[in-house]
């Protein structure tokens, strides 16, 4: 457990120093929202309908950007090898990277929601608070698989291009359920009004955190 904390601490210290991940992710999310706005011609009806989808597309694209960068940093100077040389269980390395990535993506997600509330005049309290658990569950689901796949993608010729190709079809359940849940919240309902989606999202998180922790060693270790 101390080892997991050490990895998380290392990632957070690095990020606080460089602010690389945050700035690029946030800027990207913001840009997507702005571009959508133009594309929909500022029509309020369309925006209201498309709002949840827009939010998650912005959020996931930004997240993918952050995930690729996160493993690229491990590859600089091949520091990941230094980690692999230590007597640390590979699933602990996965846990550390996954938790720190989740923290980053979650914070970016919350800020994206804030920008959203600001731009589109949603009620602050009644929107933000119920959105937080959705963003958290969505982040976990998306980062669980994303951490595994970004470790893969970094070692291939296609690199950053490969990650979204691998990730998108797999995280369809996350996107669908999170969009559905966000839709309920933006319509003024609670997340329990879409309990099937909530269950699906939680199930996805549990299944894939486990599956990815188990398979991570095959990705990260040399063959």
């Amino acid at each position: 457990m101390n080892k997991v904390l050490a990895i998380i601490k290392k990632d957070i210290v690095t990020e606080l120093r460089t602010k690389e991940l945050f700035s690029s992710m946030l800027l990207f999310a913001l840009l997507i929202i702005v571009v959508f706005n133009f594309a929909f011609g500022f029509s309020v009806e369309i925006l209201n309908l498309a709002a949840p989808a827009m939010l998650w597309i912005a959020f996931i694209f930004a997240g993918i950007l952050g995930l690729s960068r996160s493993f690229a940093l491990e590859k600089e100077g091949n520091a990941i090898m230094g980690m692999l040389l230590t007597p640390t269980d590979r699933s602990l390395i996965y846990a550390g990277k996954m938790i720190s990535n989740t923290i980053f993506v979650f914070i970016v997600g919350v800020i994206t929601v804030l920008m959203f509330i600001l731009f589109f005049n949603y009620d602050f309290v009644s929107t933000l608070i119920p959105m937080i658990p959705i963003v958290l569950l969505g982040s976990i689901g998306f980062v669980s698989v994303g951490t595994l796949f970004s470790a893969m993608a970094i070692n291939t010729r296609l690199r950053e291009v490969l990650l979204p190709i691998l990730l998108f079809p797999i995280i369809i359940p996350v996107i669908v359920s999170a969009v559905k849940l966000s839709g309920e919240v933006l319509d003024g309902n609670t997340i329990f009004d879409a309990s099937a989606s909530l269950k699906l999202l939680i199930a996805f998180d549990i299944i894939f955190v486990t599956a990815c922790a188990v398979t991570f060693e095959y990705i990260i270790d040399e063959s």
């Binding site: 290392k10 210290v13 940093l73 600089e76 100077g77």
Partner: peptide
Amino acid sequence: SHDTYLYENLTAFENIKFFAELYG
């Protein structure tokens, strides 16, 4: 090795401490 296996954005102390923690 010829690769450093170090994190460029951490200090010398933080780097070595991180690996010391992983060695338990």
